[in-house]
Design a protein around this nucleic acid. Structure first.
Length: 776
DNA sequence: TATTGATTGTTTTTT
DNA sequence: ACAATCAATA
């Protein structure tokens, strides 16, 4: 390894990079150069220790991370990086199962996503005569099944409590569900881990082959592994135990998905003799940001002791935005973003983070009103659109005609006169003869009682799929997609419809076509490492696999736009300016309004919320702005109405001196608000006092509460009734969203509902409700 | 069968 | 507020 590289690493990083054989745990705090360490370690193994690229397996959690790692390795190692195995857990599992004939799956098996799985479970439950919700819903059953799969448990091994009626039902659904997957020759996400684990455990020859194949295994984001994944890693690294796991227990935020922090917390117990390296120097954030983040995370239970530090001096204090409701919050955030931009941060350097997707609405509206360009980095990807999934289902069916689920999805898409009744008859016919639906279609003429129209439609559908199926071995993805789109007339029908929505759908389908062609192109140019063991997988199968596993579109945030995303989506990213919305009880420590978990469960939940908060804060490089609303609409106007909100307990953990106003040097800059823990605070109780100093009304439309006090079970807001209108007085200059700027002439009443007479420069004099005005 | 209007539940996070 | 599912109708 060149000295220049070694010199650029700090001591801990160097230790991790140069570590030789044996287990290694790298506890890498936020912004501590984690990816750098992994990448340089791989380079070291290949270049200095002579490990062959294909003997190294790098496992990540997300596609984005895998992609980034692969790119950085190519830059570092050049073409030899092509031979490295760099995959997400699920992509690795898929590759394993395709290549391992003993897994007993057809080589182009379809991968059912959550939506598919839910439909399958629903079908099974209605077959079993279980009404929805009696005793459990399909969703709940699937939740249980998922948890079992995360533990690598098969139906017969799934344990349920004595009186657990729901569990019992879920288990019998699980058994049938597995049978259905088996019959279809399909897998779901959980299977991609479970099946390799079980095969490796049950067949020593297979285990020997795989564990000797990989000399080194590196796992990123190890804190997010579930038990099945943990077991998979252990099986793959075998006796040599050359495994390097990198992660941060403080950033474990996927417990709900079956991840278990224990794996990282007790790594050195599971792998005795493991070396542990802590990366605590942070290269990302300013000192106040790190201090704030530490104050929040320090109170979490069950964590490895560590503390991030930075060599960087100085740094602006944190800011706190306090709004009356979510609309005002949006507006304040929009203005903060505008200010950040005005002060020189490009829009793409600014992010607004929130706990739940529902919060994005108000934020979006406010940004739009101010004409601030933004993107929502969303969870639902392009490939989850219904029309795209329809097209994909056609292709999957062509590859795997046994997949009844896919057949049922598209047999009448677009509508061609095959209704429920006809499908029932077809199913009955298939059932009788033990055939898959598609095989039943081969003899559609023998199915009794079909209306002529339906029979004809079914026959032509069958011919389309059959034709594709016959050529599927060598068919390019692009050609296959094109044929499906043409012959099924999906696009044509959508065009005929002519609504805005249908046009957009047609465009999505064309985009899928473009993606398929791009895929073919990449396949043609990429010289895939010669691998004699790898059975020839049809290109179409590889394309569909990518679609199935590409959850989030890993499009980089476009230039020139503020990024809006959930805290989960923000993991691994960094921004110059981070604005966190909704620091309120129930929102940032999120609590489900209904079910009340047991104490231990509740504490674990709360810890996870704390870590989520920590993840959000540590995304910020220079500026961290926290915001909250006093009241918030739940379920919209028709729903429960609005809820009075208490400030988040996490705010109370922040030392008051970290707060101040960003605009220093302004002679009118008031004293910073004091945020402190109430003297009598009980453990776990949000007891916060926010004292706001004068001067804040410069940022406020409605009169500032003089004092906000939050005690157990109560929140009091005291207003100074003497304050004129929204802190507005005749002569003040104000702005209205659509009417522009003007001057206040008079105020009637007080509070946010006060009527204010304003002389607008361009629109003349108008009477406006105070809450719609802002100071100019 | 397909379309429509009403009703219901949903809201945490996603490979 | 919104989507998704369900019931009633053309």
């Amino acid at each position: 390894m060149p000295d220049s590289v070694l010199d650029s690493l700090n001591e801990a990083q160097r230790e991790a990079v140069l570590h030789g054989d044996g287990p290694l745990l790298v506890l890498a705090g936020a912004g501590s150069g984690k990816t750098r360490v992994i990448v340089h370690r791989v380079a070291h193994l290949v270049r200095d220790l002579g490990v062959m690229p294909w003997q190294i397996l790098c496992v990540t959690f997300t596609n984005k991370a895998a992609q980034e790692m692969r790119e950085r390795l190519v830059t570092l190692l050049g073409p030899s990086a092509e031979g490295l195995w760099v995959y997400t857990f699920h992509a690795f599992g898929a590759r394993f199962l395709r290549r391992e004939a003993k897994a007993g799956l057809p080589p182009s098996f379809p991968i059912y996503d959550t939506e598919d799985a839910l439909r399958l479970a629903k079908g099974i439950m209605s077959e079993m005569g279980l009404a929805e919700g009696e005793p459990i819903t399909a969703r709940e059953a699937l939740g249980r099944i998922d948890r079992w799969k995360n533990l690598a448990l098969r139906p017969d091994e799934a344990r349920v409590g004595e009186l657990d009626v729901e569990g019992e039902a879920a288990r019998s659904v699980y058994a049938r569900y597995e049978k259905a997957l088996e019959r279809a020759g399909a897998t779901d996400f959980g299977d991609l881990i479970l099946r390799p684990v079980r095969l490796l455990e049950e067949d020593p020859a297979v285990q020997e082959r795989w564990s000797s194949r990989f000399r080194h295994i590196l796992v990123d984001e190890f804190q997010d592994t579930n038990p099945a994944q943990d077991r998979l890693v252990r099986l793959l690294c075998g006796k040599a135990r050359n495994v390097c796991v990198v992660g941060d227990d403080d950033q474990a935020i996927y417990r709900w998905r079956g991840a278990d922090v224990t794996h990282i917390l007790e790594f050195d117990r599971d792998y005795p003799g493991a070396r542990v390296v802590k990366l605590e120097q942070n290269y990302r954030s300013t000192r106040p940001i790190l201090e704030a983040a530490h104050a929040v995370i320090a109170r979490a239970h069950r964590r490895r002791d560590k503390r991030l530090w930075t060599a960087r001096e100085g740094g602006a204090p944190l800011e706190l935005l306090v709004a009356q409701d979510e609309h005002e919050e949006g507006e304040r955030i929009a203005r903060a973003a505008e200010r950040g931009h005005a002060e020189g941060t490009p829009f793409e350097g600014i992010a607004v983070l929130y706990r739940t997707n529902a919060q994005s609405r108000a934020l979006e509206a406010a940004l739009r009103a101010r004409r601030i360009p933004y993107v929502i980095v969303r969870g639902t990807s392009f490939y989850e659109r219904a029309e795209v999934k329809d097209a994909a289902a056609y292709l999957r069916l062509a590859l795997s005609p046994r997949s009844d689920l896919d057949l049922l999805r598209v047999v009448n898409r677009p509508a061609r006169g095959v209704g429920e009744k006809s499908l029932e008859r077809l199913s009955a016919f298939a059932e009788e003869r033990g055939l898959a639906l598609f095989d039943a279609l081969r003899e559609v003429d023998l199915v009794p009682d079909l209306p002529g129209k339906a029979r004809h439609a079914l026959a032509s559908f069958r011919d389309l799929v059959k034709d594709l199926n016959a050529r599927v071995g060598e068919l390019e993805a692009g050609v296959a997609v094109q044929e499906v789109l043409e012959k099924s007339a999906m696009i044509e029908r959508l065009r005929l419809e002519g609504t805005d929505e249908s046009v957009e759908r047609a465009e999505n389908l064309l985009e899928l076509l473009a993606a398929a062609r791009e895929f073919d192109e990449a396949e043609a140019t990429a010289k895939r490492p010669a691998d004699p063991d790898e059975p020839e997988t049809p290109p179409l199968a590889r394309f569909l696999e990518r679609i199935a596993l590409l959850g989030e579109a890993d499009a980089p945030t476009p230039e020139g736009r503020v990024a809006l995303m959930t805290l989960h989506a923000a993991k691994g990213l960094e921004f110059e300016v981070v604005i966190m919305a909704g620091l309120e009880e129930g929102v940032l420590p999120y609590t489900r309004p209904w079910r009340r978990p047991e104490a231990e469960e509740a504490r674990a939940d709360l810890d996870e919320e704390r870590r989520l908060c920590y993840v959000g804060m540590t995304r910020a490089r220079r500026t961290l702005i926290l915001s909250l609303a006093r009241r918030r609409m739940t379920y919209g106007e028709g729903g429960a109405g609005f809820r009075q909100q208490q400030p988040s307990r996490f705010l109370a953990d922040l030392p008051p001196e970290l707060f101040g106003l960003a605009r220093s040097g302004d002679p009118r800059t008031p004293a910073p608000p004091r945020v402190r823990r109430h003297p009598g605070a009980l453990e776990g109780e949000p007891l916060i006092e926010l004292d706001e100093a004068d001067g804040w009304e410069g940022e406020r439309a409605s009169p500032p509460p003089e004092r906000v006090r939050s005690a157990p079970g109560e929140l009091t807001v005291e207003y100074d009734e003497e304050a004129a209108g929204p802190g507005l007085a005749p002569g003040d200059r104000v702005v209205h969203a659509s009417l522009g700027e003007g001057v206040v002439r008079a105020c009637e009443g007080s509070g946010p509902d006060a009527k204010v007479r304003v002389a607008f420069y361009e629109r003349g004099e108008k009477r406006i409700i105070a809450r719609y005005l802002r100071r100019a």
